[in-house]
Design a protein around this nucleic acid. Sequence first.
DNA 1: CGTTCATTTGAGAAACCTCAAGATTGGTGG
DNA 2: CCACCAATCTTGAGGTTTCTCAAATGAACG
Lengths: 256, 256
Amino acid sequence: MSYAALQQPIPVSNRAFASLPSAVEGSLQRIGDMLQLIEQSVPITKRVVHAGDSVYQAGQEFECLYVVNAGFFKMVNLSSEGREQVVGLHLKGDWLGLDGMATSQYGCDAIAMDTGELWAIRYDDLLRASLRTPALLTALHQTMSRELVREQDSMLSMCTLSADARVAGFLRYWAEALAQRGLRTDQFTLRMTRAEIGNYLGMTLESVSRALSRLARGDVIRFSEKGRRDIHIPHVEALTAFMQRGSAATAAVALH
Amino acid sequence: MSYAALQQPIPVSNRAFASLPSAVEGSLQRIGDMLQLIEQSVPITKRVVHAGDSVYQAGQEFECLYVVNAGFFKMVNLSSEGREQVVGLHLKGDWLGLDGMATSQYGCDAIAMDTGELWAIRYDDLLRASLRTPALLTALHQTMSRELVREQDSMLSMCTLSADARVAGFLRYWAEALAQRGLRTDQFTLRMTRAEIGNYLGMTLESVSRALSRLARGDVIRFSEKGRRDIHIPHVEALTAFMQRGSAATAAVALH
DNA sequence: CGTTCATTTGAGAAACCTCAAGATTGGTGG
DNA sequence: CCACCAATCTTGAGGTTTCTCAAATGAACG
């Protein structure tokens, strides 16, 4: 195999999203292309899961990576003394199980939050396939690297932002994640309880509730009539402004 | 190349540490073997750095990974609004620059805290070499995975532990990192200011200082006469006990 | 020996958590 | 369809932890 083959980009396809902003279009394409690449070049075992199902558990022997084709998943890190922390949330195109390569045992529990479909890929199959299809390798590396960056950003947020700002940041992150997958971003349903959001953001469920109430009071977000889990975001920029200025009132004013 | 070649372990050598505990021996060996493997199979450019030098900066184009052969480095994540967070500390055998593979730009600043030597490896060279030497690939994956797990553990600590417990955990982590590299672990010099430790742990420098004072009052640690940066740890287990029980007095009692 | 930076320690303020009560939601069986 | 139950969510009051501000001490270096 030539070196040039290693550098070839993931094949481009699926240009049906020209009307989307380019960054979002790029992500959508990247995810779609990656899934296509995997399906074409690696043996995969498809697996359907339902809300509450465990994909794998901490300590279990590492064999497979899982690529999310549909659904919504959380990664839970559990300390030896029982402290528990949601350390990641994953949607279509994300990989699960990357934490298992270090020690040959998974380091977290991966739990389905909804009905979904996973593609299980044996790590040894992936390595073998990457000899023929080097783009697989760069896709894996980019995925791992992106995950590292995301965790670093989480640490930055948790250490430097107030509780209110972290909640605003979470909503913005969530809206972005949905946009990257071609879903509507102005209105969506949080599929997590306040307790789960709080755990992910390092605060209590009461603090999450209060933060959301303050965001709603400042008209940065609106609750749907259907329930307090449906959230309408008139202007994503208002969330950003809120994070920086630290006051819903200021954020609302800043837009007009 | 056969599939079997992909699975072969990193060559074993350097069995001179039989007296060390096996986990530590394993790590020492792993690090030494990895460095040897890299030196033998990839083109590297050695680079000497001094305290304060920047290895790379956020936004700079990603080309190289850096393996630490000597010295001590911090990774600093900087948000667009100027919030700043130390997201990682790295010693011999660690890789720097993994955060650059996602976007082809580094995501953090990497800064030398001390005189040290880095081995720069071009990412494309690494991919090419990994065709001949598949162990390089598994070493890279294990490194990235270990880093993911470490960051997840950081998040768990920052979200679920008190300030005192986080400082105790930091000292324990540090002692472990030194032990894994064959250095003495009962007494060492913190090469960071209280402010840097605090930034890394998500608290203020005053909180770090108070936590260290409480640890010293409980005789979990002792300050050397030479200065408050030299720390003596009589029993590493006392740090663990302190983290779990949340009181230096209890931790001291628990040992006798 | 003085200047500068780092560290310690205290007192008061702010953010967040805990506890508790009541409201809302979603599902279930009558 | 309605009533009821369990789970979730909101909101308030008070407590705890951590931060902020300030001052004094200690260490490093010319």
